[in-house]
Design a protein around this nucleic acid. Sequence first.
DNA 1: CTCCCTGCAAATCCTTTGCACATGT
DNA 2: ACATGTGCAAAGGATTTGCAGGGAG
Lengths: 137, 137
Amino acid sequence: MSSENTELRKAGLKVTLPRVKIFNILQTTSEDHHLSAEDVYRKLLESGDDVGLATVYRVLTQFEAAGLVLRHNFEGGHAVFEMAGEEHHDHMVCTETSKVIEFYDSVIEERQRAIAEEHGYDLVDHSLILYVKPRKN
Amino acid sequence: MSSENTELRKAGLKVTLPRVKIFNILQTTSEDHHLSAEDVYRKLLESGDDVGLATVYRVLTQFEAAGLVLRHNFEGGHAVFEMAGEEHHDHMVCTETSKVIEFYDSVIEERQRAIAEEHGYDLVDHSLILYVKPRKN
DNA sequence: CTCCCTGCAAATCCTTTGCACATGT
DNA sequence: ACATGTGCAAAGGATTTGCAGGGAG
């Protein structure tokens, strides 16, 4: 029994076919593991699985609520999802190729916390996206 | 002739009533100057101006293209617009009150540039939003 | 007078919901 | 069995677009 079953149960979700399939797609899509609901849906169809788009949205939302998955609003228009790894990271999006690069910077992380505090707040979460283009020398 | 006329002309836009009105609303709404298209639309109606919501969207998009206005995608769902001031800043949004606070931090700005560069890119733009909640001691 | 602009309504896009049926445990 | 989950189609909210009439230069 693959480990996703335990993950799902732990989240209080029945282990159903759509959920397992979607979980696996999110895990195994390595290239760009930032998928939109449509992307996931398309991959399901390609695999010959008959899952409704509505279910994909429902499942992704449940996964997000369970902390298994992160939802990002990159450009606006549509959201993308990625497996919630252990370590936090931010994103850099190439404006020409749409390539997404992940990075982590402790200096920035720390400054964010400090800034929130200076204003009398606690930092709950943050969203940092760098829009970049290939360097030309 | 108020200066917005020149601004509009400079952007290659005819000086029409809806555009001037919207420009003014964006300038004079001081409290929270982050308005959604609906917000602007509502304010127009309140002022007794008969402008269509579609026009509000069109004008805001034109203003954005002209660099007069910035569009932000805070929570997702709807966008908010603000006058493009001279100095850049980022945003902090309170998760409980929805209050928006602007801030600028040179350390973060610099790190962002450096990080993009380390990856062989030039920083074109960025979006940083801190989600915070009031500090409880 | 000629284009650019606007209002209105219909169209799109992404996402959510209602409902009757199907399925895990 | 019983509660949950699912598919389908319809509903929703935000934003865009087509079109015919209106207004700036």
